[in-house]
């Protein structure tokens, strides 16, 4: 098993505005890394990432007919793990093979007094959903999450 602490993410993330909710966007040298960055962006909607310790992990598997639905599925799988397991995550390792995604996410159970979660993400929408590679070869993955 790979230790989440020893796999620093490459790339960057940002939020973009939506009237009622929040857009999450990840950039990375590969599609998988852009997915990892967007997951960080989603976690940062909820809490300050620095307060989350990568103490335990869950494995995630998704399948979808195209990159964009696969990306929404990935975020929704994390939303499910957060809700069902009362977890927050701060480190991710994603592998994409065609229409399949296998991942590991590291984090810890929610501690309301320490994490002070600002909102709960209800789901990743298909609004402003985009997975693409730009001219320089960098990958982008983005969508709006419903909070």
């Amino acid at each position: 098993m790979v230790d989440g602490k020893e796999s620093p993410h490459r790339g960057r993330w940002e939020h973009f505005p939506h009237a009622a909710d929040v857009g999450v966007r990840g950039y990375g040298p590969t599609e998988a890394e852009a997915f990892e960055q967007a997951a960080l962006a989603m976690m940062a909607v909820i809490t300050d990432l620095d307060t989350v310790e990568p103490r335990e992990s869950v494995r995630i598997h998704c399948e979808a007919p195209n990159d964009e639905l696969l990306f929404a599925d990935w975020l929704n799988a994390l939303v499910y793990e957060m809700a069902a397991g009362r977890m927050l995550f701060r480190r991710f390792r994603v592998r994409i093979d065609g229409t399949r995604l296998d991942a590991q996410a590291w984090g810890e159970p929610v501690d309301i007094s320490r994490h002070r979660p600002a909102v709960e993400v209800k789901g990743a929408t298909y609004t402003a959903l985009r997975v693409a590679r730009d001219g320089s070869g960098e990958w982008l993955a983005q969508t709006v999450v419903d909070v």
């Binding site: 639905l69 809700a83 069902a84 298909y126």
Partner: peptide, 17 residues
């Protein structure tokens, strides 16, 4: 709550496909 959110998520994908 979570149940409704997941029903929305599940059927959004199925209907899109």
């Amino acid at each position: 709550r979570g149940l409704g959110h997941q029903v929305g998520t599940d059927y959004l994908k199925r209907m899109a496909i």
